[in-house]
Design a protein around this nucleic acid. Structure first.
Lengths: 344, 344
DNA sequence: CTGTTAGCGCATTCAC
DNA sequence: GTGAATGCGCTAACAG
């Protein structure tokens, strides 16, 4: 392993000067800089990140802490995240690293261990909860991080998110405008901030249309096919007045809904209108479901680059205002929405 | 962040002594040691790994480098590996970290960057190829690592593996003993050491039975359902003399074979006998396929602990003899094997 | 523009 | 048993 000292001896200049040249400081002679760069390349020099971290507080390594997932349903999402983030941090000359948090471990303790170990510059945090303890910890310790999502509407930390309130509003009002009055919303897990935001949008759309909300129409659950299946069974259960339209939190849920409606002999959009949010995860395509689906659309893939950008700049100490960004959401109207069925 | 110096001041002893107490050195007074331990716990002391790595060469961080996978078919395997390894290294007080290698990047360069960055103690290496350049690099640089698999039969590096030659032999001879003479082997990708070992076992079983091998019966491919589907189509193609039995490299392939045979109107084991190797990956169960499958069985899950053990000891400098270990493989006889169909 | 000095947190000499 | 001194590789503050 080549060190700065090797280069310094090789070139006959001081270690300091080599360091400055390599780090692009302005106060270095042009000729000196070129010689240093050439020698570094020739000797395949790479800075020792442990040493650098020790003295400057920066290693160029950032981490994502993920819980061990319960369902294999999420495996693809997991791989997508890790791959996308890794790629974009590499492109910035940083190292991205994944740390798994055991099911029984307290995530905050894991962050604490990692922070105290003193080899990381910052974190990407996913799936914020209402009142998330991880966020409080990182803020307390003044550790740079970027949130994928938000846990309040106007946070005082860096984040990349989409407007989930708008998603809920968009999906719901699309259905309301067609005349639907009983709209079920098959949401993600209660407590997740983005799910609550969508629920809020659902309620606002109803309020704007002057229509009362039936609380039993909002069903929280895992973002899986199973959630869609079970919820439909529940909504059409004995003695219930079923909805005329359904909005789903993602395409897995929508797929389950299609299966269940089919089993009940109900058609889309003839008997039930259907909309969903589409993250464009691999394995499911909103156009190629049994009926092309009307969706609010915002590919998750487009978030990895902004997340990497924001965290990189956060580590460099950029002002908060530049570190908060919203992705775009588009409504794609397709064939899965019609007016409410007269028979119901 | 509490440092050794904080503890030293707090206790009125020298930094040296605190360090020795914490690291369990023998030349420390019993009472001193207890006081140090108590203070460390109270002040939530954690060693700075960058500093430790710098002076002692050990950080306690190990890494797995994985290629960005092409197929989502492998996502579960990916998650399994990362979760299992992470858990077992955590239990040993080490940190396990994942690094993704872009599709276009040369893996050896990635290892080189990581090694030169000087913050890692060692690596887990998966999916060895014949003449694997990563292995040569790590050996050259004397970086501790453990191989999941082997790239030669008697390697001079630490590994955990199963006897894949025996797997190939076991599956094949099970079929030969029932009287089959045309046995297709739907193997994994050519070049992967474990696939070649299985092919070798397939040939040895034939040689022992005095039966000539038809080279077209050995089909390499991805370990996917698609491989099973396409290979059956190919084996039963026009002008071909199809096999009376098929051995599959894993259950994904077997699932594809089931689908294809069904489409051809062929039954298992009536028309075709079927065996496979079962890694016990989530999502597929060899007992719950259309016909309970005879398999060579060795759960991948059982490899994470030995891998963590071996790498931990390798970093500590244990002798090679203690760092090579084979997992067990069992043959589970079920309903998917019969004698060859007379009609063929 | 350049070199000298100092110190990040730790483990390991070497003295007592 | 204990402490003082040294240095891992690097960057930053301070002189010239």
């Amino acid at each position: 392993m080549t060190t700065l000292r090797d280069l310094s001896r090789h070139l006959g200049i001081s270690v300091t000067q080599v360091s400055r040249a390599l780090n692009g400081h302005s106060d270095v002679g042009a000729e000196t800089r070129d010689r240093v760069m050439a020698a570094a390349a020739a000797l395949n020099y790479q800075p020792n990140l442990s040493a650098r971290k020790l003295v400057s507080g920066r290693s160029g390594i950032v981490a994502l802490v993920l819980p061990e997932i319960s369902s294999t349903q999420y495996d693809s999402l997991f791989v997508q995240s890790v791959g996308g983030l890794s790629r974009h941090f590499s492109a910035r000359g940083m190292q991205f690293v994944l740390h798994m948090c055991g099911r029984e471990e307290d995530p905050v303790r894991v962050y604490e261990r990692l922070v105290n170990s003193g080899s990381l510059d910052g974190f990407i945090v996913q799936e914020p909860l209402a009142g998330d303890a991880r966020i409080r910890f990182l803020q307390d310790r003044k550790v740079p991080f970027v949130l994928h999502g938000r846990h309040v509407a106007q946070p005082d930390y860096p984040f990349f998110d989409i407007d989930n309130e708008a998603v809920g509003h968009m999906l719901t009002s699309t259905l309301l405008q067609k005349g639907h009055r009983r709209i079920a919303f098959l949401n993600g897990r209660k407590g997740f901030a983005y799910c609550e935001a969508r629920a809020e949008g659902y309620r606002r759309a109803h309020a704007e249309a002057g229509i009362a909300v039936d609380d039993r129409m909002m069903i929280y659950g895992e973002m899986t096919e199973g959630h869609g299946l079970i919820s439909v069974a529940q909504l059409w259960g004995r003695g219930r007045r079923p909805p005329t339209a359904i909005a789903c939190g993602n395409l897995f849920i929508a797929k389950g809904v299609f299966l269940a409606l089919d089993a009940l002999g109900l058609s889309v959009p003839g008997d039930v209108s259907l909309v969903a949010h589409d993250d464009e995860l691999p394995g499911l395509n909103s156009e190629r479901l049994p009926v092309p689906l009307t969706v609010s659309h915002s590919p998750l893939q487009e978030s990895w680059k902004p997340l990497a950008d924001i965290l990189t700049r956060a580590v460099e100490g950029a002002p908060l205002a530049e570190l908060q960004q919203l992705g775009t959401v588009t409504l794609l109207q397709r064939a899965s929405v019609a007016g409410p069925s007269k028979s119901l």
